[in-house]
Design a protein around this nucleic acid. Structure first.
Lengths: 339, 339
DNA sequence: TCACTTACTGGGAACGCTTCCAACTACGTC
DNA sequence: GACGTAGTTGGAAGCGTTCCCAGTAAGTGA
């Protein structure tokens, strides 16, 4: 049914070997023969069979993108799309394809296809949630893996991350600099390292300024708008209420803003607000949100580079690559005390 | 290096054929033999080679998800994530894997891998933008395809879609019912069928109520927050200004809201606002947005079902499946005139 | 006891490609 | 004129599966 390399060889009057050599741009093929083969390829619109090729060369030119959480919880903000765009950028460049491996909320087959030998050359863990499935899989897997975000329990896995801790510290220092002292934080999930590190950056800034961290001003959220709303309502019950809030994600900052509005308070005059991520909405909201920008697409791009470099020429001696990308403070309107 | 079926067969003291039969749950295998083979599989942690299997059975159990536009423009709202989640749901259920085929903003190799024979069993077009690449690819491709959204120029392609036109009509009728008469619309891109159909629904509702469609009250956006903001500012320059606005996406409604706030106007008292999509933020914003809910995950799920059903047992006579899923009006606070 | 089924098993070709190896040319070179 | 040598080619053995086909052993009914 489909045209094979044999068919091409026959049409060009050469052997399969020669046709293969032409296809793969090997040297030492007579120019005239080479042209005859290309002609046959063009005439028949021949496309080589990728599966057969993979089997023969024992590589698939496919990497997996592992998304350990139900996707809709993560895609609620544009983090993952940008990450994937970054990965895709590198993959397209180097002729690799991407498989999506995700845990659905209902399905019970996470990482279904990863285990099958020969299917993937390597994998990128898109968001390092250290759940049991992921850890169990890492335990027994043999293909090279690069993680977005450090995996504490597996220090041998190369990773790329942004400097969450420093970013958080910068933005909280900015709040302090603006004159706020009773600064609360709505953290990310503490089982995610980004959640923990942003919290640590918050602590760093307070401690450095001689302000003690008050446990009641620390509320754990899950990065979603809703959780920011709930956390802010909790914070508003304290007396005196915080005069500034650092939300560990812009979506949570958005939720906090909604709670503040509902309580009749204005930002930044009654309460200052800062976020993390710099999603497009952050610049668009009123007041425009002061936040920390992270180079998300770059993150994905770098992770893919790390993985593909490794795959294309594996290093002689094993070295674990680690890359930390810088974050950037974006000052807007949500934490300036109006005179 | 990796364990093969031959190794398993040898360990269990049987032929490769028998080992294969055990692996694939064929009948007519002696129970004792069967158990010996399974034991060898467990002991060695054997995983069958997917590539070799694909080659032999001439199926890959992989479908492609084709995303014809730079992903970040589409992922700006949670549409695509939910769609993918729906597709993944069906795929996980039936042991299929998903390849992501996306056009990056910089890359010039869209649909890179689709052409390679044997790589994909079928494909889902995630968002029917009729650009040249897509049409060109459809022209020459041979694998089964299902589209999310109708592709006008290729009526032979099965598709799944939501009833955009009726949904838009419902929400505009609701505005009319609330007493608004000078109703503007911010449409989606007119080269996307969803954009056109929502606009037609808007026209339907007005016409049915005996209101004529005023060209100056129709502004084309691109579904993004920013485009909603810009369009609303344009609308505000007209005198008399519209008393209600139907934005063809919630993100654009959000942008419109920002423009209205900036102009010192309140929703719904000065201007009513309605959206389309029912993204999570729609319920969370102030005022909560009246909008049209579309079953996005269901859309993906259905598309995947259509495709996989077709792949698993191709129908004898060719029939083009078409499915239209209903939309639902969600009434909240943004279009009730306060007494 | 003899066909005749039925349950089970192994051999080997096939899937479509890559690549090693050997062989064959043509061209100088001593 | 024998002898490398480099360029060029085809044959054939893989890659790790599936599955058809033939064959054996055991069970069944006349």
């Amino acid at each position: 049914m489909n045209i094979t390399l044999d068919e091409i060889a026959h049409r060009a009057g050469v052997s399969r070997s020669t046709a293969s050599r032409v296809l793969n741009h090997h040297p030492h093929v007579n120019p005239a023969v080479r042209e005859r083969v290309w002609q046959a390829i063009r005439e028949t619109n021949y496309q080589p069979n990728h599966t057969a090729r993979s089997l023969a060369i024992r590589r698939s030119q496919v990497i997996g993108i592992i998304i350990p959480q139900p996707i809709h919880t993560l895609f609620a903000d544009p983090y993952l799309p940008l990450l994937i765009e970054g990965i895709a950028h590198t993959c397209n460049e180097r002729q690799f394809a991407m498989m999506l491996e995700l845990a659905t909320s209902t399905g019970n087959h996470p990482y279904l296809h990863i285990g099958r030998r020969g299917f993937l050359d390597g994998a990128i863990i898109a968001s390092a949630v250290e759940d049991q499935f992921l850890l169990q899989w890492l335990q027994q897997e043999t293909i090279p893996v690069v993680s977005i975000g450090r995996i504490i329990s597996h220090p041998g896995i190369p990773y790329v991350d942004v400097d969450n801790r420093h970013g958080a510290r910068m933005v909280v220092e900015h709040l302090i600099h603006c004159g706020y002292r009773r600064i609360a934080t709505i953290t990310g999930p503490m089982n995610i390292i980004a959640g923990r590190e942003r919290y640590m950056g918050y602590c760093d800034a307070l401690t450095a300024a001689g302000i003690s961290v008050q446990p009641e001003l620390v509320i754990e959220g899950n990065f979603s708008e809703e959780s920011g709303y709930i956390a802010m309502n909790t914070l508003l019950r304290f007396d005196p209420r915080p005069d500034a809030v650092f939300a560990a994600s812009d979506m949570m900052a958005l939720g906090a803003l909604r709670a503040l509005r509902a309580a009749g308070l204005t930002v930044p005059n009654d309460v200052a607000l800062a976020g993390f991520d710099d999603i497009p909405l952050a610049a668009a909201m009123t007041p425009a949100l002061t936040t920390v920008r992270q180079p998300i697409a770059k993150l994905g791009q770098t992770a893919a580079c790390l993985l593909l470099d490794y795959l294309l020429n594996p290093p002689a001696e094993p070295t674990v690559q680690r890359v930390i990308l810088p974050t950037e403070l974006v000052i807007r309107e949500s934490c300036h005390k109006q005179p």
